[in-house]
């Protein structure tokens, strides 16, 4: 407690001229077709987006995309082909070896291909440990830029949320881009109507 007070009083004793908070209203870019821009940018960062047709069978589509996937983690009721429910495991370690994770995203961002995923499963590890990540996103929830996104994002009681823009990557060896550092090696976003 005393360290806290020392630091705060040192801040105060060194304070001089103060500055006002500006009005934060930049002329931020707006896209007429946010979904089209989102798909384009996501592709440029190594991911991809697929528009599902109305009434299309999600499970069949997943199976055709990932025919090799034996272990599929998801707590979404519509994902009937899931083999692990991340809400029902004793420790997140049991998700190691997961081939595919399916999660729901809430907001897409056209300018940078980000999808906001508030933690909605018991173990957030599911978003990071699977070899491939599939995100379901309502096409009508794609905003143009981060200002709009931050005005809309929400949290569940888990108290964690993440913007994910494409697959995990690194260029730490000679600036050569490699996809699949620690997280998903591939990210696909299913856009639903």
């Amino acid at each position: 407690m005393s360290t806290k007070n020392d630091i705060l009083s040192n801040i105060r004793s060194h304070s001089g001229k103060t500055y006002a908070m500006p009005v934060i209203e930049p002329d931020a870019i707006r896209y007429t077709d946010t979904a089209a821009r989102f798909m384009e940018v996501l592709k440029s960062v190594g991911g991809s987006a697929i528009e599902l047709q109305e009434g299309e069978d999600i499970n069949a589509r997943i199976m055709s995309l990932y025919p090799e996937a034996r272990s599929i983690a998801s707590n979404l009721p519509e994902i009937r082909i899931a083999t692990i429910n991340p809400d029902e495991i004793a420790t997140p370690h049991l998700l190691n070896g997961t081939a595919l994770a399916v999660v729901r995203g809430e907001i897409g961002v056209a300018e940078n291909g980000c999808v906001w995923i508030p933690q909605n499963v018991k173990e957030k590890a599911v978003c990071f440990i699977a070899e491939y990540l599939l995100i379901l996103l309502d096409k009508n929830n794609i905003v143009s830029n981060m200002h709009e996104a931050y005005a809309k994002i929400g949290f569940n009681d888990y108290g964690f949320g993440v913007f994910i823009s494409g697959p995990s990557k690194t260029a730490d060896i000679e600036q050569a881009l490699v996809i699949g550092a620690h997280g998903a090696k591939g990210v696909v976003v299913f856009l639903t109507a």
Partner: peptide, 16 residues
Amino acid sequence: GQPATTYTSHYRKPRK
């Protein structure tokens, strides 16, 4: 020179 980092993570509460 990326439009965003792959992960922008918000840690608000400790895990259960």
